[in-house]
Write a protein that binds this DNA or RNA. Structure first.
Length: 459
RNA sequence: GGCCCCAUCGUCUAGAGGCCUAGGACAUCACCCUCUCAAGGUGGAGGCACGGGUUCGAAUCCCGUUGGGGCUGCCA
């Protein structure tokens, strides 16, 4: 048997959908496992909805995930003539017929087509669309690696459109014609296409009766918490968004692979490249999968913690914007166990870069309560101690411990106002390491500045 | 409405008739550790939608019910 040919065929109508990413991944895995060919085809037939930058976004997203393609990108819009020619041949052969627009319903949309033009023998003319004449009898069976052999009565298939009244090709026509021309052998796509597949097969047989039909694999849908297909309108679905939020590409690939499939040995954490040999479309589950952000976060946090220091440094740099990453580098090991996403780093260490920390009043009030009337004495002692002690974490800590003891406060309480003084917040990376990185001068200055904010008449 | 698909802890899943007293992961709860917050460690709670069959034996096979979803566009 000839080497398989698979394709990912996204439409450039917006950001890259995670569902498309998962479909691309499974196509890629199957292509790589079998030594087949992975084709990228941009389905931009709907000129009105295309976004020029989206096609580029598709390619960059695939690259980001590490999914390389062997052919393409092909652009469907550039194959318009071939699609139209195929459609006209279909009309000529009686597989399709011309049809007038349907009257508008009260809601302003055209009514559902009822087959009224089937036998009118209308000519091709401006304003008329071309429709496929679906068989009235018989049934069409789809051979699906994941779902078995669903069979559809042909009578329920509507006479779907091939060409718009503008003359432009529609999805099914372009999709099938291209799959024929590109000799696609495996159509791996979302389950939402399953119901369209009998139409796909009928069209294929009409255009290229001698070409063997591809084998199908309809992947389970990725759904939201309401178990509905992920939608761009209500759900967070763009890969670009996940990238910008600081999810690691290898984690996204790993997580997406687990939606509907798992390696035979049951392990959950893996690189997609390591799982090629174990992958099998036949092992893909058939029930829909919820996209669980919590689990993605857990995976991402784990992966961040496993990063080597220099790797982490490189990955964090773009998330710091204009800030010099070298400044935070000494604190990175402490930051590493505290972030789940890369975009959490900047707000966690902003105090190192800003002239004044972002002051959180609630944190300060809480710190004052923990130290009651001793805040001023405590901060005074810390400022004095820090001015003279060796500038390393242990010594810096000892100063706070001693200052606390002198005020009758344990370290847990004593560190609170000091932390707010330095970082502006009640939570953050370990205080003493942070102080060391901040620098003696600035640290002491901030403690003194905080001293001025202690209420004169403490409760 | 019609057609099609689906159904194991809250979630992702393991499970292809006896290995199941249903395993793992995330989430959750408790405890330990602890300068905040994390991380880490230990332990706990939690599921085969329901009803019929088939079988010596069913989470696994069959039928039905219920529930959920998809498609039904001159979108893809």
């Amino acid at each position: 048997m000839a080497a398989p040919r698979l394709r990912i065929a996204p439409s450039p109508t917006g950001l890259f959908h995670v569902g498309t990413a998962r479909t691309a991944l499974f196509n890629w895995l199957e292509a790589r496992r079998t030594g087949g060919t992975f084709v990228l085809r941009i389905e931009d037939t709907d000129l009105g909805r295309n976004l020029v930058e989206a096609a580029d976004g598709i390619q960059r997203s695939l690259e980001w995930l590490g999914l390389d393609w062997d052919e393409g990108p092909y652009f469907q819009s550039q194959r318009r003539e071939r699609h139209v020619a195929a459609a006209l041949e279909l009309a000529e052969a009686g597989f399709a017929y011309w049809s007038d627009p349907m009257p508008l319903a009260p809601d302003g949309k055209p009514e559902r087509y009822d087959g009224r033009d089937r036998d009118r023998g209308l000519d091709r003319s401006p304003g008329r669309a071309l429709r496929f004449r679906s068989p009235d009898e018989g049934a069409t069976t789809v051979f699906d690696l994941i779902r078995g052999e669903p069979t559809f009565p042909n009578a329920v298939l509507e006479d779907f459109g091939l060409l718009k009244s503008s003359g432009d090709p529609l999805f099914l026509l372009a999709n099938v014609a291209d799959d024929i021309d590109m000799a696609i052998t495996h159509v791996v796509r979302g389950e939402d296409h399953l119901s369209n597949t009998p139409k796909y097969q009928l069209l294929w047989a009409a255009i290229a009766p001698s070409a063997p039909l591809p084998v199908f694999a309809h992947l389970p849908l990725i759904v939201n918490e309401k178990r509905q297909k992920l939608s761009k309108r209500r759900d967070k679905v763009s890969l670009e968004q996940f990238r910008d939020d600081g999810y690691l590409p290898e984690v996204m690939g790993n997580f997406l692979a687990l939606l509907g499939w798992s390696p035979p040995d049951g392990r959950e954490r893996f690189a997609i490249g390591d799982v090629i040999k174990e992958f099998s479309l036949a092992d893909v589950l058939s029930s829909s999968a919820y996209f669980d952000l919590k689990k993605l976060d857990a995976f991402n946090g784990d992966a961040i913690r496993e990063l080597a220091a220099d790797d982490l440094f490189e990955r964090i740099t773009p998330f710091l914007g204009t800030w010099d990453p070298a400044r935070v580098q000494p604190l990175l090991p402490e930051v590493q166990t505290r972030v789940v996403r890369l975009d959490e780093v900047a707000p966690m260490v902003d105090f190192l870069y800003l002239d004044e920390p972002v002051w959180d009043d609630a944190s300060w009030e809480k710190a004052l309560r923990q130290t009651t009337g001793a805040t001023a004495a405590l901060l005074g002692a810390v400022a004095q101690g820090w001015s003279a002690c060796p500038w390393e974490a242990e010594a810096v800590k000892a100063v706070v411990v001693d200052a606390g003891t002198a005020s009758g406060l344990n370290l847990k309480k004593a560190q609170a106002p000091v932390r707010v003084a330095l970082t502006g917040r009640a939570v953050g990376p370990p205080l003493f390491e942070s102080a060391v990185v901040l620098g003696r001068g600035e640290a002491v200055r901030r403690v003194r500045a905080a001293l001025d904010r202690v209420p004169a008449l403490a409760p």
